[in-house]
């Protein structure tokens, strides 16, 4: 009971900090009056929204969290860049080399936030698009399912590439 209460309090703090950071980005000034208004608005937002932000409970808080998030973002941006060059090659080649197929993969991430981030990452990686998430199964649209390749293992490789990084800071 005690720990649950502490976690609820922490959630208020997280929402408050996030709202305040967003306010600072929007106004872009540290003027005292604007800061006061921002503090008030963030407090109101935290009181209203924090009880419904159950999605945040999947995060595993630790001092090295920003480092892990930064590493995940690095991997993610590399994949995004690679996927865009891949897509540009496909679009510009006159023969249009695509063979779409729907593939089903399983994920071992338990939390909703983890699955959301994983689905987003898959959407932005080379040649794949998350179509649906049902429990622990992800339905992935695969743009280049050539007859020779082993589809299951190829997809699992894509998923595990992000899963290993996400599992470090998510349930």
């Amino acid at each position: 009971m005690e720990t649950e209460k502490a976690e609820g309090l922490g959630r208020y703090l997280v929402v408050f900090t996030g709202a305040l950071l967003f306010w600072l980005l929007l106004t872009g000034s540290l003027d005292s009056q604007e800061l006061l208004a921002g503090l008030l608005a963030s407090a109101v937002v935290a009181v209203m929204a924090a009880p419904r932000m159950g999605i945040l409970s999947g995060i595993r808080w630790s001092p090295v969290l920003p480092l892990q998030v930064a590493r995940y973002l690095g991997v993610f941006f590399l994949a995004l860049l690679r996927s865009n060059f891949d897509m540009a090659r496909r679009v510009l080649s006159p023969a249009l080399p695509i063979r779409p197929a729907l593939v089903e993969v399983k994920t071992s991430l338990q939390s909703d936030l983890g699955r959301l981030l994983l689905a987003n990452s898959i959407t932005l990686t080379p040649g794949t698009l998350t179509v649906d998430v049902e429990g622990e199964r992800l339905l992935v649209h695969w743009i280049d399912a050539s007859p020779g390749t082993d589809l299951e293992s190829a997809t699992r490789a894509i998923v595990s590439q992000f899963e290993t990084h996400l599992r470090e800071f998510l349930e």
Binding site: L80, S83, M87, T123, L124, L129, V131, H141, I143
Partner: peptide
Amino acid sequence: FNRIQAGAK
């Protein structure tokens, strides 16, 4: 689906 894929990325 391919259009969504090209557009999103």
